[in-house]
Design a protein around this nucleic acid. Sequence first.
DNA 1: AAGAGACCCTGGATGC
DNA 2: TGCATCCAGGGTCTCT
Length: 278
Amino acid sequence: MPELPEVETTARALRKKILGREIKSAVATAPQLFDDKKLFRNIGKLLRGDRFSAIDRHGKYLLFRLRSGRTMVAHLKMTGHFLIGTIGYSIVPIEKHIRFYIDFMDGTKLLFSDIRKFGRIWLIPQEKLSEFFENRKLAHDALAKEASEAYLHAQLTRNRAVKTLLLDQSVIAGIGNIYADELLWLAKVHPLRKGVSLSENEAAKIYQAMRDILNRGIKAGGTSIRDYRHPDGSSGSFQKERAVYQRTGSPCPRCKTPIKRIVIAQRGTHYCPRCQEI
DNA sequence: AAGAGACCCTGGATGC
DNA sequence: TGCATCCAGGGTCTCT
């Protein structure tokens, strides 16, 4: 499930492989990938001859900056991932779910695979980019310097469960279900605690845990529990470090109490009933 | 303002 | 073995 560490891992890997190369052609095979159906039909014509000049990330969004000034924005949602192939070694035959791919003049291939077709790609002109993200009400990225301890505490001061707030991209951007559960366990805060009830000390612990867990996730190359893979097809390893996520009934690494599972905001939520008292 | 539920999708696991 | 049902959770949308 791509969250901030998986998207960051993807951005880092792709930077090494596709920057500066001239686009020869682009082909889309799943119209669902594009909210704008004209883009689905014209993506090849629109990208031909252009080059990626930078790849950035905001929350779970990937921003492929183009030399022409436009930005190809991508969201992996649940099962999307980018892959790199080359001529002579094509991954197309063994990847059944390629929805979009770009061929570069030097033979490099960028492929977008997405089993469930929840992923989305947009092509945004420079002058519309800030509007694009404003419309989506995207908050500061969880690892950006703007996301200070004071910012997070202020953002969490609402009458909703802290887990729900952490998952809300307009509160803080980049956290999904796995890292939300893991960071709340590390901070020893119950997922159903109302954000407004958190003490200064608890908010500080959540902030530290958030940075710690996300940085460890990046270091591990993300979490590969189901579908997430690196652009070279290899796996992340954070799943080996998780304390609570999908470990229902297993002992808490701190106190050996069996991990509990409840549902919050339609998401499976895992926590230690002893370490994380309500 | 907040929460519940439907929806978008597919594949793997589970149950009979 | 085969078929039906459930579950995974990123996000958007509607209704209460």
